[in-house]
Design a binder for these strands. Structure first.
Lengths: 126, 126
DNA sequence: CTTGCCTTTGACGTCAACGTCAACTTTTAC
DNA sequence: GTAAAAGTTGACGTTGACGTCAAAGGCAAG
């Protein structure tokens, strides 16, 4: 499939796809005239890339974690990187849960007081 | 306390503190010569701001969620905003957990195969 | 063959959250 | 009093992940 279809099927722009290629996150066959052609599995690869971006990784890190043309054998170094990123991610999840709980307690306090007309606890004190 | 001490105690730079003020996330008393002076609770407020930034909110949103000089009474609009942000955050947490689990399965597969010498599952297929 | 859409490369623009530097004034230490 | 340290405003620089536009070539339909 060509770039437009891949873009449409993954919900990202063609500009983003070219950017991913520039960052070595994605490769493409080229037709004789120079147009990019992608296989089916590119769709899933884009999803993976987006997922890792959403997890806060930058393109360099994503490239390091997803070597796509090596022989499928993990090096100890790669394993170590994966482990480190997993732990980072875990820490961020913990922090976000804490933040969510803090929001929850503010919301509970505020909505309870809405009816009584009492003052709400200041969000900073939650 | 002055800006340097607040910066030191919160681990952010003075530039960041001035930026927060510019974005209406933070207010400060001014001495006659124009220097900023902060009360104790500024420390906790900075932590809150950092926490919300870490949760992916931008300064405009943080400002809207933490009106600091109003009378402590939540408006229905504020409550609605808080609720919406909470739901956004919850969705992001869910996504991150999915990503973490995907990383986990890759790591387990890879480290198991390290010893057998077998090929690892490609990360994209996890 | 031409019309219209798709694709190519290249280059400049954007936006948020600050970093950095300059020029200057205040406060602190001795 | 004087030098060092800390504070002030203002302005320009940075970074990452693209957006946007220009100029040009490719491709199926009629």
């Amino acid at each position: 499939m060509r770039i437009g279809e891949l873009a449409h099927r993954t919900g990202v722009t063609t500009r983003a796809l070219r950017y991913y290629e520039e960052q070595n996150l994605l490769t493409a066959e080229r037709s004789s005239s120079g147009q990019r052609h992608y296989a089916e599995d590119a769709v899933e690869r884009i999803r993976l890339i987006r997922q890792l971006y959403a997890a806060g990784l930058n393109s360099k890190t994503v490239a390091e974690l997803t070597p796509d043309v090596v022989d499928g054998r993990a090096t100890p170094q790669l394993l170590q990187r994966l482990d480190a990123e997993r732990d980072d991610l875990d820490q961020r999840i913990t922090d976000l849960i804490r933040t969510r709980d803090r929001l929850d307690s503010v919301i509970r306090g505020a909505s309870a007081n809405m009816h009584t007309g009492a003052r709400c606890p200041r969000i900073a004190d939650a």
